[in-house]
Nucleic acid binder design. Sequence first.
DNA 1: TGACGATCGTTGCGTTTGCAACGATAAAGG
DNA 2: CCTTTATCGTTGCAAACGCAACGATCGTCA
Lengths: 167, 167
Amino acid sequence: MTPDTFRLSTFLPYRLAVLSERVSRRLTVDYERSHGLTMAEWRVLVHLQRSGPVSVREIRDSTNLDKPRVSRAVARLEAAGLVGKVAGQGDGRLVAISLTDAGRAALAEVVPSALAVDRRLREAVGPQDMAAFLRVMEAMHRVLDADPEARPRAAVDVEAAAGDVAD
Amino acid sequence: MTPDTFRLSTFLPYRLAVLSERVSRRLTVDYERSHGLTMAEWRVLVHLQRSGPVSVREIRDSTNLDKPRVSRAVARLEAAGLVGKVAGQGDGRLVAISLTDAGRAALAEVVPSALAVDRRLREAVGPQDMAAFLRVMEAMHRVLDADPEARPRAAVDVEAAAGDVAD
DNA sequence: TGACGATCGTTGCGTTTGCAACGATAAAGG
DNA sequence: CCTTTATCGTTGCAAACGCAACGATCGTCA
């Protein structure tokens, strides 16, 4: 409790931020260099690959990006011809965003190196430790879930949690 | 090669970023609300608490912030009266930045809640898993250390690293 | 059906970010 | 001693960010 013992280098939030930023930057090197993609655009593209036509809201929940960021990322991707956007059919407020062929081609070029980064990280860790790592991350999320001061957790993968009514 | 299997929700860089951002945001609630501190200013203050008068460069290496960010954070903290800055004595290029009494007081108010967040995160995890967690983070850093495309690791706190990583 | 509240996506706006260039000082080399 | 190179910290600037407000559309209920 004595503030003198406070050390940044052992502070969990700090360590998480440092590692996370370093990993993210390493990733960015690949998809920024090849297609000028920002992280937001990258996430949107990746999500669209699995989702089919979706709304901005759906992307927001699935990519942990806020509304304006998704909106602008989609706008840039549309200008670059990587995604298409049409007005929603049933609901006039919604839009339907989907990959174009060019978007799929761009993904095909960028995904392998991203997967390589992921694979290298996993290979450097034993399966035992990796399982523990994922357990810990989940436990930390639960701590935040129970904390009224923390922002609610983003929606989880649709197939993983079928039938959620987040709204 | 098989982009169809790519899932954002299991992608390690994404999971790290999501957790890290959520934890950081939770932290920010405390020190932003009480003193209007940004994360950069918070890190600078915390580091100064253990370091004595130091240069911008030293802060940069110890807080994982780039040069301009430290410079501006210090400028704001100085304007708020939380740190003092004097020209370097030996080397005319360096500056010597140190905490003021007001800065120490601000830290004393903010550090406990930050420690509480850290403690709650650690308590939710078994010591076994926490040790594995730290091992994994270190292993990932080493992967990036060996990657020429990755940004070099920030300088580590020598004293802290000693009893830190089970190795 | 008409008014009210809620939700969708976009946009405005001030702040922050990241990179690069800059002046100033120090160190190295002839 | 003078030139050259490197380092320190700051600043300019364009881009991105975060929050709030907005128009538009939908659902609800009197």
